[in-house]
């Protein structure tokens, strides 16, 4: 529990740093940076390994926690008729299993919302587009951006009257010249827009991604989930050190302080992102 817990704390930091791009870099630059980051996170082999470790950690942490809870329940088959646990322990410390279960539910929905869409969904993800005004005509044209930095006009993917489209998207992100069957480049999945739409901003292009009419609830759900996470970390962070045997008079206060600071700051920063996105819609 302790090792996976501490690893997941590290994961939280990484995840948070990525997310913070959503509010610290704005406009097209932000969109580009975020989508590039998303691409990096899904394609870098080292990150890939790390992500599998993370999945396993979550699974192990949850399953081990579940088994632990069952065993611990069995250790006291007859409950006390009158109990006053508040006199000797903090509330979060006694509800770690419940808090953990809520977090697990959150993780599942969270992954369904973004991770699943990004990786497996049969509905194709919208691709990163940029609108540029033609310097001559002044008319606005839309382009896909490729990894090599090329701009591919979206119009090339649409037929005009009798004329079939010159290009098509294969495998979700790859741009092919249809006739010669040649790959022209690869686009970015536009996770940025998906996220912003999810939290209420209107980023729809042709209804993709769909604007989330329930964004307020999404925001609320995320904020509450982060509060639950805060309580879980409030006890969990320092507890992990104790479980690993790292208890020393000189450092105990520091570990506890660090844990509680972590428990407040990290979830708070996570929570602030959807709130800001929602307010800026």
């Amino acid at each position: 529990m302790a090792l996976t817990g501490l690893f997941l704390c590290l994961f939280l930091v990484g995840h948070l740093l990525g997310n913070l791009q959503l509010i610290f870099i704005t406009g097209e630059e932000g969109k580009r940076a975020f989508n590039e980051y998303a691409y990096f996170m899904t394609h870098n082999p080292f990150v890939k390994v790390l992500s599998y470790v993370t999945y396993l950690s979550i699974l192990f942490h949850a399953i081990d926690g579940f088994l632990l809870t069952i065993k611990n329940k069995k250790a006291r088959p007859v409950p006390y008729a009158y109990n006053n646990p508040g006199a000797n322990s903090s509330t979060p410390s006694r509800y770690m299993a419940l808090l953990g279960s809520l977090i697990l539910i959150f993780i599942v929905t969270h992954m369904a919302n973004f991770w699943w869409k990004m990786k497996f969904s049969s509905d194709p993800m919208p691709l990163h587009q940029v609108v540029v005004a033609n310097p001559q005509s002044g008319a606005e044209e839309t382009f896909y951006i490729t990894h090599t930095g090329d701009y591919v006009p979206t119009s090339a993917f649409v037929g005009e009257g009798e004329m079939p489209a010159a290009m098509e998207v294969r495998n979700g992100t790859e741009f092919y010249l249809k006739e010669v069957n040649l790959k022209r480049g690869e686009g970015y999945k536009d996770l940025h827009s998906v996220v912003l739409s999810f939290f209420g901003q209107d980023k729809t292009k042709d209804g993709v991604p769909e604007k989330n009419e329930m964004a307020l609830f999404a925001v609320l759900f995320y904020v509450i989930a982060m509060m639950v996470l805060a309580f879980h970390l409030w006890h969990g962070f320092a507890s992990a050190f104790q479980s690993l045997g790292l208890n020393h008079k000189a450092y105990n206060k520091m570990i506890k302080m660090a844990g509680q600071t972590f428990a407040i700051i990290v979830p708070a920063l996570f929570a602030i992102i959807p709130i800001l996105l929602f307010m800026n819609k």
Partner: peptide, 13 residues
């Protein structure tokens, strides 16, 4: 058949 420690600290108190 004792349970496991989850570091609530109640025992110490």
């Amino acid at each position: 058949g004792f349970g496991n420690c989850t570091n609530t600290g109640a025992c110490e108190i």
